[in-house]
Simulated assay, not measured.
Amino acid sequence: MVLEIDEIKKILPHRAPFLLVDRIIEIDPFKSAVGIKNVTYNEPQFHGHFPHKAIMPGVLILEAMAQVGGIAMLYPEENRGKIALFGGMDNIKFKKMVVPGDQMIMKANLLKVHGDYGKLHAESYVDDVLAAQADFTFALQRPED
């Protein structure tokens, strides 16, 4: 199943410039998702990080990976309208710089889910080379809570 940007915006509360997933190319709700982020020089972070050599900030790579995992959790109708909040990040590794012109393929797998809490492992690839990986703990909540 493919989710285009309009469907992604129905699932995630993020908006530009902080919506960091352009397309979901695979999804197995409550289990996994694979998403794409097309990295372009027009994004605001590249005007300051770093002007002489644009590099996507690691925190934004992590956020993009977490958003793909969030889509796997928030896709089911019973979770629509909730937001995924970070509880923690572990085992973070950056292996390759991500620069304008790259396409990140992000794979998120839910390791365990207990009610509105869970843990997921995510990886980001550029040209089939591992760029980053991390484990995330999260909690789902209604925005008004």
Rank of each mutant, 00 (worst) to 15 (best):
K112I: 11
G115R: 14
P57N: 12
K37Q: 07
G70I: 02
K96E: 09
A33T: 05
P76T: 06
V2E: 15
A122I: 10
A54L: 02
K37E: 03
H121K: 15
L74Q: 13
Q67N: 08
Q67C: 04
K112P: 02
L140A: 06
I24C: 07
R142H: 10
G35T: 02
T137I: 03
L120H: 07
Q45K: 00
D135V: 15
F86H: 13
A134K: 04
L130F: 07
P29E: 06
L12A: 05
E78Q: 14
N42E: 09
K9R: 14
K53Q: 09
Q45W: 01
F50W: 11
D28K: 15
P44W: 00
E43Y: 00
K10W: 03
V21M: 10
A33S: 12
Y75H: 15
K82L: 13
I11N: 08
R23H: 11
K96A: 07
M106K: 01
I27D: 12
I5W: 07
G35N: 11
L3A: 13
S32H: 14
V99S: 01
V39N: 01
I11Y: 10
A134F: 04
V126G: 03
G81L: 03
K119P: 01
D127C: 06
M65R: 08
I92W: 12
V59P: 01
D127F: 02
I5C: 05
F136Q: 08
A134G: 10
N91V: 03
L19T: 01
F46M: 02
Y41H: 02
V2A: 08
I105A: 02
P17R: 01
H47D: 02
N91D: 15
F138L: 13
G88A: 11
Q67V: 07
I83Q: 09
A16N: 13
F138N: 05
K93T: 12
P44F: 00
H49Q: 03
V129K: 15
N109A: 10
V2C: 05
S32M: 15
K37G: 08
L120I: 14
E123F: 09
V113S: 13
F18I: 09
G115I: 01
P29G: 11
N79T: 05
V68A: 14
A134N: 03
I61D: 06
P44D: 00
F94D: 11
A122D: 05
V68C: 05
G70Y: 12
G81A: 06
I5F: 07
K112N: 14
A131Q: 14
L20I: 01
H14T: 04
Q45C: 10
K37L: 06
P143R: 05
V98W: 02
A54Q: 14
D90I: 04
G48K: 00
M89E: 08
V39A: 02
F18E: 00
M1Y: 04
V59S: 13
I92M: 09
Q133L: 13
L74I: 13
Q45N: 00
Y117K: 15
G88N: 10
I24W: 07
G70K: 02
P76H: 14
N91M: 12
L12Y: 07
A122S: 14
V59D: 00
V113C: 05
Y41T: 00
D127I: 08
I27V: 15
A16R: 01
